[in-house]
Lab assay of single mutants.
Amino acid sequence: QWKVGDKCSAIWSEDGCIYPATIASIDFKRETCVVVYTGYGNREEQNLSDLLSPICE
C-alpha cells in the first residue's frame, strides 16, 4: 500500500512518458493521490492504481 512520501513512478499526462515522482498526498476515498515529479516540481493527480514502482536511476 502506498503512503505519503513514497517514491514511485508515474505517467505524466502531457506526454505519456514515465517519470520518477514522490507521493505528496493521498485521498483513500477516491483512490487518488497527488504526485510531485522529481526534478521538475510539477504536481499532478493520479489514480493510486496507476502508480508504478520507482525507477532505478
Score class of each variant (00 low, 15 high):
Y37G: 01
D27Q: 00
T38E: 14
A24P: 02
D15V: 04
W12T: 02
I26S: 01
E44Y: 06
I55C: 13
K3R: 11
Q1L: 00
S25H: 05
L51N: 02
Y19G: 02
A10P: 06
S49F: 08
C17G: 10
G16P: 07
L51R: 02
P20A: 12
Y19M: 06
V35M: 06
Q1D: 14
N47E: 07
E57H: 12
V35S: 02
Q46M: 08
S13W: 10
G5S: 03
A24Y: 14
S13C: 04
L51F: 02
K3N: 11
G16S: 03
D27S: 00
S49K: 14
A21L: 07
A24M: 13
Y40D: 07
Y40S: 15
F28V: 11
T32F: 09
E44D: 07
S25R: 02
N47Q: 08
K7V: 11
G39E: 09
S13G: 09
T22G: 04
Y19Q: 02
W2T: 14
T32R: 03
E57P: 12
D27H: 01
I18P: 07
E44R: 03
T32P: 06
S49E: 09
L48T: 02
G16T: 06
A24R: 05
K3C: 11
G41N: 10
C56H: 14
I11K: 08
A21D: 00
L51T: 01
A21S: 04
D15W: 08
P20I: 11
W2A: 15
F28P: 12
G5I: 06
P54W: 09
I55L: 13
N42Y: 14
L51V: 01
W12I: 08
E45S: 05
V35R: 00
G41C: 07
A21N: 01
G39S: 04
I11G: 03
K29F: 12
I26D: 05
E44N: 05
R43W: 13
S49T: 09
V36R: 00
D50T: 04
T22C: 05
C56Q: 14
K3L: 13
N42P: 06
S49D: 04
E14H: 12
G5D: 09
Y40E: 06
Q1P: 02
D50R: 02
D50A: 11
P54G: 09
I55R: 10
D50F: 08
N42T: 14
V36M: 08
N42E: 06
Q46R: 06
V36F: 05
K3E: 14
P54S: 06
S49Y: 08
F28R: 12
Q1T: 01
D15A: 05
E45R: 09
K7M: 12
S9K: 07
T38D: 15
S9V: 08
Q1F: 08
D27G: 00
C8S: 00
L51K: 01
Y19C: 03
G41R: 03
D6R: 00
L48H: 03
G16C: 06
R30H: 10
L48E: 05
C8M: 00
D6C: 11
W12V: 06
P20V: 10
A21K: 03
C33W: 10
D15N: 10
I11Y: 07
I55Q: 12
V34L: 03
C17T: 01
G5Y: 04
I26Y: 00
I11Q: 03
Q1C: 15
N42Q: 10
A24D: 09
L52A: 03
S13Q: 02
C17I: 02
T22E: 10
L52N: 02
I23F: 00
T32L: 06
G41F: 04
E31Q: 15
L48Q: 06
C56P: 15
G41T: 06
K29T: 12
C56M: 14
Y19R: 02
P54T: 07
P54R: 10
S13K: 13
T22F: 08
S53W: 13
E45I: 11
E14G: 15
P54I: 10
K29I: 13
C8L: 00
A21Q: 07
D27E: 01
D15S: 02
T38H: 10
N47W: 12
V4W: 03
R43Q: 14
C33Y: 05
D50L: 04
P20K: 03
C56D: 15
I26E: 04
G39D: 10
C17A: 09
E31W: 11
G5F: 02
A24W: 11
S13E: 05
V36N: 06
E45L: 09
G5K: 00
V35A: 01
R43M: 14
G16V: 07
L52W: 04
G41V: 04
E57A: 15
S49P: 05
W12L: 07
K3V: 13
G39N: 08
V36H: 03
G41H: 08
S53C: 10
V36A: 02
A21H: 07
E44Q: 07
D50V: 06
V36E: 13
G41P: 06
I11V: 11
K7Q: 12
V4N: 10
S49Q: 09
T38L: 11
W12H: 07
K7A: 12
C33P: 00
V4I: 01
D50Y: 07
R30I: 10
I18C: 15
G41I: 04
E31Y: 07
S53M: 13
S13D: 07
D6A: 00
G5A: 04
L52M: 12
W2N: 15
T32A: 02
V34F: 05
S9R: 15
V34G: 01
E45H: 03
D6F: 05
G39Y: 14
D6V: 04
W2R: 14
F28E: 12
Y40H: 14
P20R: 06
I18E: 05
Q46L: 11
S25I: 11
I23W: 00
S49M: 08
T22L: 11
I18S: 01
E44S: 03
A24V: 15
R43F: 13
S9F: 15
P54C: 11
C33S: 00
F28N: 10
D15Y: 08
G5M: 02
V34D: 03
T38M: 11
Y19P: 07
S53A: 14
I26L: 03
E45F: 07
T32C: 02
D6P: 00
I55E: 12
